[in-house]
């Protein structure tokens, strides 16, 4: 088995594959990271799903249903990438997500109630996610990097469609603009928290970074996001809320006053103890149970191992 020293020494982009015998610490850290990512894709899709029905036009409905379908696909890709580490099976990860042990992104623990909130997820949160995912194309676990290739390919449409919804709302009636601004104010701190706590408070960063799993620190990612998306928000006429205070440095990057953010709520969410988040978890669980019969029927009707004959292969 490869020792941790060698892993750290070799840890370049796409360096390790299932052909490598990697130490438990690496495989567990990678599993935690990818499982979190996979769960987030699924929970994000469930959060947005009601808006397929609530879309204000046929164009939006088509695009939004394509998007939700994409996100479920991303979840499937990522469970495969996580499963290939040999720590947890896909079933174990899905069960954990259903029973409340599976962790996922803070933003997807909040209810999404109105169409004006939709671009908060599908433009800002997806934009933040895409920033992070672009860096993960250079992660050291090859199956994860390969999943990111496909995810990033598709995600450009999501972000631009989300931006288009924002544009439409912010060029709409005064009432629409006002409601969008209110939604923005509510979601803005959560969006900033997407990138997690500052580097010095991040529990897993150092190890994940030393073995090449994570490519950029929380602070760098947050800065890069703000740098890109503050001008975008302003361009559409959104006012950046006074809190959290954001200071523009001389070099054009931003520093967030971390104490202005609600970290109690963030860590309550991180433990899956936030009430609305539990509603999301259970909502998905019930949806899964409701269609159990479909999965069972498919499995029952599939001929054993799809006609696979091992003796012919070996």
């Amino acid at each position: 088995m490869m020792d941790l020293g060698t892993v750290k020494e070799r840890a370049g982009p796409r360096e390790f594959s299932p052909a490598d015998d990697l130490p438990r610490e690496y495989r567990e850290a990678a599993t935690r990271m990818i499982e979190f990512h996979a769960n987030s894709e699924i929970m994000g899709a469930y959060l947005e799903r009601p808006f397929i029905r609530q879309s204000p036009s046929i164009d939006r409905k088509l695009a939004f249903s394509a998007k939700v379908q994409d996100e479920i696909g991303h979840g499937q890709l990522l469970y495969r990438a996580a499963e290939s580490l040999g720590v947890k099976t896909r079933e174990e990860m899905l069960d954990d997500l259903a029973n409340g042990d599976g962790k996922f992104l803070n933003c997807f623990h909040y209810p999404l109630e109105s169409w004006v909130e939709v671009p908060m997820i599908s433009f800002f949160v997806d934009g933040a996610a895409m920033r992070r995912q672009a860096t993960l194309r250079r992660t050291s676990w090859e199956p994860y990097a390969h999943a990111m290739d496909k995810v990033c390919f598709e995600e450009g449409f999501h972000v631009k469609h989300g931006e288009d919804i924002l544009k439409e709302l912010m060029t709409g009636s005064r009432k629409e603009q006002q409601m969008t601004q209110e939604a923005f104010e509510e979601w803005w701190p959560r969006i900033i928290q997407f990138f997690g706590p500052t580097d010095d408070k991040s529990t897993h960063h150092d190890f994940a970074s030393s073995v090449g799993l994570k490519q950029q620190s929380n602070d760098d990612l947050r800065n890069a996001f703000l740098d890109q998306y503050i001008p975008k928000a302003r361009k559409y006429g959104l006012e950046i809320p006074d809190e959290p205070r954001i200071r523009e440095r001389d070099d054009g990057t931003y520093a967030v006053e971390e104490d202005d953010l609600d970290w109690d709520e963030f860590f309550t969410i991180a433990k899956n103890e936030y009430e609305p988040g539990l509603g999301q978890i259970n909502g998905r669980k019930h949806a899964q149970e409701a269609v159990d019969w479909v999965r069972e029927t498919i499995e029952r009707d599939t001929p054993a191992a799809s006609g696979h004959e091992p003796q012919a292969a070996d």
Binding site: L62, C152, F153, G156, F157, K160
Partner: peptide
């Protein structure tokens, strides 16, 4: 017609994040 699934179907204003541009180019 599924053109709604392509980033190119949406005209947005201002500079897009480089990873969005990259995705659009791949599409």
């Amino acid at each position: 017609d599924k053109s709604y699934r392509w980033a190119t179907a949406y005209n947005t204003t201002g500079t897009d994040a480089r990873e969005v541009v990259e995705s659009e180019d791949e599409q």
